[in-house]
Design a binder for these strands. Sequence first.
DNA 1: CGACTTTGACCGGCGC
DNA 2: GCGCCGGTCAAAGTCG
Length: 198
Amino acid sequence: MASFPYEDSNPNANPNPNYTHFPPILDPASFFDFKLSDFLIFDDDDINIDQAASSSPSMTSSEKITGVDSGGSSTIIDSGSSIVVSSGASKSIRSKNGENKKRKGEMGCRVAFRTKTEKEIMDDGYKWRKYGKKSVKNSPNPRNYYKCSSEGCNVKKKVERDREDASYVITTYEGVHNHESPFVVYYNQMPSFTSTPT
DNA sequence: CGACTTTGACCGGCGC
DNA sequence: GCGCCGGTCAAAGTCG
């Protein structure tokens, strides 16, 4: 639990659904286009990621980790930066016929992070399809819901603006991709970027 | 014409 | 039991 997200260029190689890997920010163009601002990590099911991620921007990342992480590991990316990671999301999923299914832990992990960006959507290399938009309580900004549009991939993400500072965007990933990012495929095909030993 | 977005409705969980 | 809230569905609209 100490790997840097941008080193995890092959999410597909992860056989463990509970493996907590970082958000696939793999597009250099988009990566440098925003300032990573929050990166919290925890393992507790009951923690409200959204609240943790959107807590006061004046807090330091170490303060956030102390307040949120109940003994789990943590990785600080940058001064004042934090991401929230949960490895056991508990979620109630409603099927089409109205049947409700408990899917505790099925999603693999959740990752929430806050970034300072003007863009609502961060291009993380994956293709997302929007399936919902909801105004949430205590926040003037609506929350957008996205699913990975790859067939068979159940990864979801929520995107909302920080209620305290609209220049920040809170992104919550849920689950682990069962395929490689289109960007990774493209990246791996580029001779100048392949990891040839010197 | 297919893929995607929008948006209102619907549903289950949860607190009171 | 009831109402609020978050999350999802799906039909209609939009766009390339």
